[in-house]
Simulated scan of single mutants.
Amino acid sequence: MSLKELFGGAITALAPTNLIDASEIRQVPDTQEVLLYPDSDVSIIVEVLERVQPSDYREAAKFHFGSLAHDNSAADSTVLSVDIVPNDRGDGTPDAIILDGSQHVQKFNRTTLDTVHILMAVYRLVQKNVDLVVTFNIPVGAEDGSGLETLQRTRTQFEQFSRSLRIVDFSLFA
Rank of each mutant, 00 (worst) to 15 (best):
M1T: 12
L6N: 05
G8L: 04
I11C: 06
I11M: 07
A13E: 06
A15N: 06
T17S: 15
N18M: 10
N18H: 13
A22T: 05
E24N: 03
I25Y: 03
D30S: 14
D30A: 13
Q32I: 14
Q32D: 07
L36T: 15
D39P: 01
S40K: 02
D41A: 10
V42L: 08
V46W: 00
V48S: 05
L49N: 13
V52N: 05
E59F: 06
K62R: 07
S67V: 06
L68Q: 08
N72H: 07
A74C: 06
D76M: 13
V79I: 15
V85M: 14
N87L: 08
R89A: 09
G92F: 14
A96R: 15
G101I: 00
S102P: 11
S102M: 12
H104P: 10
V105E: 02
V105T: 11
Q106V: 14
T111R: 15
D114C: 02
T115K: 05
M120C: 06
A121L: 02
V122E: 03
L125K: 02
L125E: 13
V130F: 01
L132I: 13
V140H: 05
D144A: 04
G145E: 10
G147I: 00
T154K: 09
R155S: 03
R155F: 03
F158L: 08
E159M: 12
F161A: 01
F161H: 05
S162L: 00
R163W: 01
D169S: 07
F173Y: 07
